[in-house]
Amino acid sequence: MATNKHPKLDQSQLKAFENAAAGHDGVLSDPSGELIIKPCVDAEINFYQETLNLHPDFSEMMPTFMGTLSLGSPAQVAAPTAAHEPAELSQESKDQQLLHGAKIATKTAIVLENLEHGFKRPNVLDLKLGARLYAPGTSDDKAARLDKVASETTTGSLGFRIAGMKVYNPEKSDFDIYDKFYGRQFTSSNVISGFETFFSGLSSGLKAEEAQELLETILAEITKARHMLEKYESRMFSASILVVYEGDSSELGVLMGSEPKTPRVDERAPTRLEVKKSLEEEEEEEALPPVAFKVKMIDFAHAGWTPGEGRDENVIAGLKGVEGCMDQLIARFD
Rank of each mutant, 00 (worst) to 15 (best):
Q49R: 14
S157H: 01
E50H: 13
L279N: 11
E34T: 15
S90E: 04
L98P: 00
I330G: 09
T187F: 02
D30K: 00
S250I: 14
F47H: 14
E323G: 09
S249Q: 12
N46Y: 10
L329I: 08
D126H: 05
V149K: 09
M228C: 09
K38Q: 10
L99H: 11
S278Y: 10
V265I: 13
M236I: 03
E171G: 02
G72V: 02
D147L: 10
K38Y: 12
E230R: 07
V244R: 01
A21F: 03
L98K: 09
S249M: 05
P80V: 09
A87Y: 01
L214D: 06
A78W: 01
A21R: 04
L215W: 06
G137P: 07
A303Y: 03
G118L: 15
E313K: 08
E283W: 10
Q76T: 14
S73K: 12
A82T: 12
Q49T: 15
S70I: 09
M236S: 07
Q91M: 01
V111Y: 05
K103L: 14
F198P: 04
S189E: 11
G130V: 06
G324L: 10
F300W: 12
P307R: 13
P63T: 11
L52R: 14
Q91P: 00
E92M: 05
L255T: 04
L99G: 00
A82F: 08
D334C: 07
I298Q: 04
I330K: 06
T153V: 06
A102C: 00
E34M: 03
H302W: 01
K277S: 10
R145M: 11
E221M: 03
E60M: 01
E259F: 04
M256P: 07
E323I: 09
I104H: 12
T106M: 02
E309Y: 15
Y232Q: 04
K120S: 09
T197Q: 07
E284G: 04
K166P: 01
E286W: 13
L115F: 06
P31H: 05
S59A: 14
Y134W: 11
F237I: 11
I222H: 02
N114G: 10
L279P: 07
E233P: 05
G205W: 00
K38C: 14
A292R: 10
V243W: 02
L112P: 12
L242V: 14
H24P: 00
D299N: 11
L319K: 04
R311L: 12
N46C: 03
M66L: 15
T138H: 08
F293I: 02
F175I: 00
E274L: 13
P86H: 06
S238W: 01
Y134R: 13
S90I: 00
P56C: 14
M326I: 07
K103A: 15
T81R: 03
D140L: 07
L35G: 11
A208C: 05
A22S: 13
V295M: 13
G67P: 11
E230K: 07
Y178L: 11
N123G: 07
N19E: 05
A2I: 09
Y178S: 02
D176Y: 01
Q212P: 01
Q11M: 08
T262R: 05
E44V: 08
E88M: 12
T3H: 10
S70M: 11
L71M: 13
I330N: 08
S32M: 08
K148L: 07
